[in-house]
């Protein structure tokens, strides 16, 4: 641990401000709470929101796991994990079951989460209506009045153009039958895991200066049409490393002749299954 920094990098007043915003976010599921986002030693888009939420939550006994697109060993994940190991001295892990706090970019772990775990999402654009309505004052009014017909315009366009709802990530959800919410750019494969999850889910958008939350066991509904219901992605392949047929698969090009393989995006889940198979 680097002694010249306060525990978990941020000063105590900043962490207190963040915690107050987080409490408000948990009290109003799906509502975007403004907060005073700080400069972090990390560029915008790399998880400045998530890292601030994690810093505000970390205690000395926490065990931290960081994933990026499901993997523990990618640049973003390694950097953030090492960052907190240095400025907070907390224990880190790559095992989902051992972690008390998981910061994630664009995935929810395959291993079911528990009540004593918190998942922190990195969010680039917290406003699900933004591509349809550029005015912030207007989107806030739409949220206040729960006037969400506009979101279906986007889904309508998908079906009109592609024959099915082609939105495959950052798929809009309605939280607790009230607030339209961006689940962050997770694949829609992960949307069902948001619904009534035992773990607390917190979302931080550093550049946009917004926090929001999905408390444990909250209803989360993915939007759809009556005759075009919500569906998750499916693959004809199994993971080539662990043989899983129920996890989210990444397609990896393995040579310069276009050969490809499908492997689990969740490296911890895949590794555990392979270890079990060998044992």
């Amino acid at each position: 641990m680097t002694p010249s920094y306060n525990f978990a990098f941020l000063d105590e007043d900043t962490k207190r401000m963040l915690r107050r915003a987080l409490l408000k976010a948990v009290a109003i599921p799906g509502y975007q709470v403004p907060f005073g986002s700080r400069e972090m030693p990390l560029p915008y888009g790399w998880g400045t929101g998530g890292i601030q939420v994690t810093a505000a939550l970390l205690g000395r006994d926490d065990i931290l796991k960081v994933i990026d697109q499901g993997a523990d060993d990618t640049t973003n994940a390694v950097n953030i994990r090492r960052f907190f190991a240095r400025v907070a001295g907390v224990e880190t892990t790559e095992h989902t079951v051992d972690a008390s706090l998981i910061q994630t970019r664009h995935r929810i772990p395959e291993t079911p989460l528990r009540e004593d775990q918190i998942l922190v999402f990195q969010v680039p654009e917290p406003e699900p209506l933004r591509t349809l309505e550029p005015r912030e004052a207007e989107t806030r009014t739409l949220h206040a009045l729960a006037d969400y017909g506009l979101m279906h315009v986007k889904l309508y366009e998908d079906i009109a153009q592609y024959g099915h709802i082609a939105t495959s990530y950052d798929y809009p959800v309605l939280v607790d039958d009230r607030f339209l919410t961006s689940p962050s750019p997770i694949p829609k494969f992960d949307n069902p895991k948001l619904d009534r999850s035992p773990a607390l889910m917190l979302f931080g958008a550093g550049r946009e200066k917004r926090l929001y939350a999905i408390p444990p066991y909250t209803k989360v509904e993915s939007l759809a049409f009556d005759d075009h219901p919500f569906e998750i992605q499916r693959w004809e392949h199994r993971c080539e490393l662990c043989g899983s047929a129920e996890s989210y698969l990444d397609e990896v090009i393995v040579d310069d002749r276009g050969s490809r393989m499908f492997v689990c995006s969740d490296t911890d889940f895949c590794g555990d299954r392979r270890a079990e198979a060998q044992a």
Binding site: G149, L150, V153, Y156, E157, A160, D226, D227
Partner: peptide, 27 residues
């Protein structure tokens, strides 16, 4: 008009705002 979406979506938008959620009917 909403210029970045199709003509059909423009016509259907007000219906969706009123809560109609059946794609083929909207169409």
């Amino acid at each position: 008009l909403r210029l970045n979406v199709s003509a059909g979506a423009n016509v259907a938008e007000r219906l969706m705002a009123l809560g109609m959620r059946n794609y083929s009917q909207l169409r």
